[in-house]
Design a binder for these strands. Structure first.
Length: 509
RNA sequence: GGCCCCUUCGUCUAUCGGUUAGGACGCCAGGUUUUCAUCCUGGAAAGAGGAGUUCGAUUCUCCUAGGGGCUGCCA
């Protein structure tokens, strides 16, 4: 399939919110497609009707959009290979199952779920934990291999429920070359006769994904490592269906692991460890549970994406900050790692900080203004920009920008206790009183003039910055730390600054 | 249990047989700063273990250990 157009699909099942591991899979698909000038397709794998969760599909689509990795084609995006929901493709699958049966690569099985449970339990009791429906055990089960043709036809005509299982050859080595892992090989003796077509008339994932990938002309299947064990089965299906020459190339991605302990990252880890595992907040309709999202936690989508891209891939250079376009240009499946990657929330925060810092003051001003507005505080764009410019160096999130700059919006209600105790005394009081007087005389109350007046006071009285600064800061902001006082005062304006100095002189001991 | 995959600093990772094993996050120290943050400098910190191939292995092979995934009429 090397000459065909690159077409990749992200194929989640709508059983709940998409978690960040899924987003990363989507991202790698997107990056690869865009780099190759190909298409990125969204297909909804809802062949298990019992696991359908309302809102999940919408959530998936909204998540991809928020991340900026919008599909070119697929459910919710149109295209010529639809429908893109497997439940709506239901009628297409049966013929392929029948074809496999006709060709001797599959068979009907009439064993009920209870039959199978019983056999499995018996095997377990006998000390074998893993009973499989395979080339040996199928001989003692109820299927078209053991039943006479007559019996089979009768059952089918009677409408008895059945499934179609693939018929695996004995002792056959199945090999395929995975883009990230190289050659992977499994013997059919270790595989089982998987169900391809369920008794409810729907295909299983295994059949559906092969049929759809073929019909949708998918060139590369990029998915999580959890699919690696069934990839040989899929290879066999392509072969038995006669599609092996156009079989897509596989790339199985390493899993995202829990930051602590063992296992893959799961939805419970987030709240347990204090970080979101979902791109967007998710409300579980049934339980009423709320799972937090990166978006609602104030992460920038490009920072989130940048972080995710680096969980399992890196460009081999020292560069770590990549825009989506840069990721598209630099990405390579060949450079994807094989081992699972542990999620590191500190690094995610760092990415967000970097993105925040690299935004223009104008943009940050707008975001801060919006944040303030949400808190019912109106602030001019000019002031918001000024504050943002001053505060951005110490913020990770827009929320920090807002929370750390409260003193710009209101005179101190209380004064930092420690600073008060250590820095406020009669001397500090006299400095503040004197500064107030000098500031009064400034006609153009800008940063430079304030600084000049302040420094003139210091030099005329042979005072060090440390003698006057802390008390001054405390009086104006109520705090013991923060950015340049001259800039702060300039933003506050002359009237407000003087008023605060006055308040301090009146209220502080 | 069986099968498959994986294994470099605490974490994410670079290294295409010869490097003082590099970077980033986090951590620690120092410097800059009135202070905090930023920033700058420095530091601690890794090739799971064992065989083999080779003049030489982190790099190739095998074994062991450890980790992960799968093992459903779920995806």
């Amino acid at each position: 399939m090397s000459n065909a157009k690159v077409r990749v699909r992200f194929a989640p099942s709508p059983t709940g919110p998409l978690h960040m591991g899924g987003v990363r899979t989507a991202l790698y698909n997107y990056l690869f497609a865009k780099q190759q000038g190909g298409d990125f397709i969204l297909r909804i794998e809802d062949t298990d009707q019992t696991r359908f969760v309302p809102g999940a599909e919408e959530y998936i689509i909204e998540s991809l959009k928020w991340c900026g990795i919008t599909p070119d084609e697929g459910q919710g995006f149109g295209g010529n290979y639809g429908p893109y929901r497997q439940s709506e493709r239901k009628a297409m699958y049966r013929q392929y199952a029948e074809q496999l049966v006709a060709d001797g690569h599959a068979y009907y099985a009439f064993d009920s779920a209870e039959d199978l449970d019983r056999v499995r339990q018996m095997a377990k009791d006998a000390g074998s934990p893993n009973w499989q429906y395979n080339h040996i055990t199928r001989n003692s089960m109820k299927n078209s291999l053991t039943l006479s043709q007559n019996e089979v036809e009768k059952k089918l005509e009677a409408g008895e429920p059945y499934v179609v299982r693939i018929k695996l050859n004995r002792n056959e080595e199945v090999k395929f070359e995975d883009i990230v892992r190289g050659w992977v090989s499994v013997n059919t003796n270790n595989m089982d006769d998987k169900v391809l077509f369920k008794s409810d008339g729907m295909p299983t994932y295994h059949l559906a994904n092969i049929v759809d990938d073929h019909l949708m002309e998918i060139s590369h299947v990029i998915r999580g490592e959890e699919w690696l064990p069934s990839a040989p089965l899929h290879v066999l299906l392509y072969r038995y269906l006669g599609w092996e020459d156009t079989m897509p190339q596989f790339a199985h991605l390493p899993l995202l692991l829990k930051p602590d302990g063992n296992g893959k990252l799961s939805k419970r880890d987030g709240d347990r460890l204090g970080f979101p595992v979902f791109p967007l907040e998710w409300h579980n309709q049934e339980s009423g549970e709320v799972f937090s999202g990166y978006r609602e936690n104030g992460y920038f989508p490009d920072a989130f994406i940048n972080m995710l891209a680096f969980l399992g891939w890196n460009p081999g250079t020292a560069q770590e900050l990549f825009s989506l376009d840069e990721l598209v240009a630099a990405f390579s499946l060949k450079k994807v790692n094989k081992a699972g990657a542990r999620y590191d929330h500190d690094k995610t925060r760092w990415f967000n900080q970097q993105y925040l810092r690299h935004k223009s003051d104008a943009e940050l001003g707008k975001l801060l203004q919006a944040e303030a507005s949400e808190q019912d505080v109106e602030v001019s764009l000019e002031k918001a920009e000024g504050i943002a410019a001053l505060m951005k160096e110490r913020a990770y999130f827009i929320k920090d920008l807002w929370e750390d700059s409260q003193f710009f919006f209101a005179a101190p209600q209380e004064y930092d206790e420690k600073t008060l105790r250590k820095k406020w005394n009669e001397e500090a009081r006299s400095h503040v009183a004197e500064l107030q007087k000098r500031f009064e005389a400034i006609s153009d109350f800008n940063t430079e003039n304030i600084e000049e007046a302040f420094k003139a006071y210091l030099s005329e009285n042979e005072l060090g910055f440390g003698k006057v600064g802390p008390g001054f800061r405390l009086a104006v902001t109520g705090m013991g730390m923060g950015p340049s006082m001259f800039e702060i005062c300039a933003i506050l304006g002359k009237e407000e600054t003087l008023s605060r100095l006055n308040q301090a002189l009146e209220q502080l001991p």
